[in-house]
Amino acid sequence: MEKDFIIAGFGGQGVLLAGEVLANAFMLDDKNVTWYPSYGAEMRGGTVNCSVVMSDTEVSAVQKAKAEFITVLNQASFDKFVSCVKKGGSIIVNSSLAAIKKTREDINYIFVPITKLAQEKLGNIKMANILALGVLSRVSKLVSLETLEKALYTVIPPHRANLIPKNIEALKLGYEYDLLKV
């Protein structure tokens, strides 16, 4: 089995970090995994995305045109990547920063006001990326919250360890997105 993920947003939303946590989680689950960022001349504020490929065997290709699970944190990324969701796949849309609009019949749309939730429930919009991972965990059923938690400990450096509890809270919030009233 091989599954492809794309996480996209604008620079500063932490999509590369979210991808790194996801990839680490797959590694902790003993899967083969690759993480590949869009990299360009842009720094803060530009669009950015990363691909994560998880496989039980050798990863077939590091960068792919399409993915089963695509998470978009802003409108520009939604516009760009909605056509890249594989048939039957899912797109998780941050409806705080993108319009709720369905243009395809053959994919699942999950609209969650990720930024708003991060702000209102966690008091920090910077938690949006990890919150989105919680949603992804629930939607994909391919990575558990427990493993993502462990991955946080791998990715967040020791001198920032104080941020981990808040991030775990964000994961849990995301996982239970459908129970939340905003």
Partner: peptide, 10 residues
């Protein structure tokens, strides 16, 4: 190459 340099893998 740029792909190997920029990608992450275990």
């Amino acid at each position: 190459d740029g792909l190997l340099g920029q990608m992450m893998e275990p």
